[in-house]
Design a protein around this nucleic acid. Structure first.
Lengths: 109, 109
DNA sequence: ACTGGTACCTAGCAACACCGAATAGTTGCG
DNA sequence: CGCAACTATTCGGTGTTGCTAGGTACCAGT
């Protein structure tokens, strides 16, 4: 992984995961697979699980244990009301930063 | 500072500073002032100086000590060839991430 | 018995931005 | 003169984050 992308993901990965969950509930393995399939080829699996633990502890997601036919039971996460608020905030913050960077790129130096 | 913006700045602040330097050489205090004037009102001063030390150690910038009429001597930073390469990479990485997020925002979940 | 896919977890690490403070030179004001 | 205010840089300690590199567990097919 490039150092730059690693650093940029700090802060955005959480938003990305919340955004995924805003569409539908999902479990960790599924989220990892989604990321891999959508261009984030080498996000470490452990990273996703650690992130989910964090957002759960903060009350941004609700968890439901669901038995799986294959392998150990799944932990299915869904966005909580607080998580929805956080996601809103995330998009605002992202928009702010994206706007600044766009200007900067166009020579506003 | 919002926690979210703080985390998002990780990785991007370095790109922002390099982008500023790509326009013209500048010293730390000046860069801080520029940031404050352009919407990044509460980026800690110490943060900028620490960042400059890092990019200098990595060879992304050249430094020139210039006596100031006011206060201690300035350290004027300018983008090195390596820094220009890094800045290019930064924009590519940013574009990658921005594209992913844009899709995500538009319901590609 | 063994491989491979599913599914989750953990400890230790490095990088980054923040906070709070210190240092040092110059100008201006009471 | 003394002291605030501005210029300009540095530093130690903190918390959050993603990565590395494993481990655990369950099941199906060979």
């Amino acid at each position: 992984m490039s150092r730059q992308l690693t650093e940029m993901l700090k802060g955005t990965l959480e938003g990305i995961v919340l955004a995924i969950l805003s569409g539908r509930p999902a479990h960790g393995y599924e989220i990892t697979a989604w990321l891999r399939a959508h261009g984030f080829a080498d996000i470490a699996e452990g990273t996703v699980y650690a992130l989910l633990v964090r957002v759960e502890r903060r009350g941004l997601v609700d968890v439901r244990k669901v038995p799986s036919e294959k392998g150990p039971p799944r932990k299915v996460y869904s966005l909580s009301p607080q998580g929805r608020k956080d996601l809103d905030e995330f998009w605002k913050t992202w928009a702010f930063l994206a706007e600044k960077l766009q200007r900067l790129r166009k020579g506003d130096k």
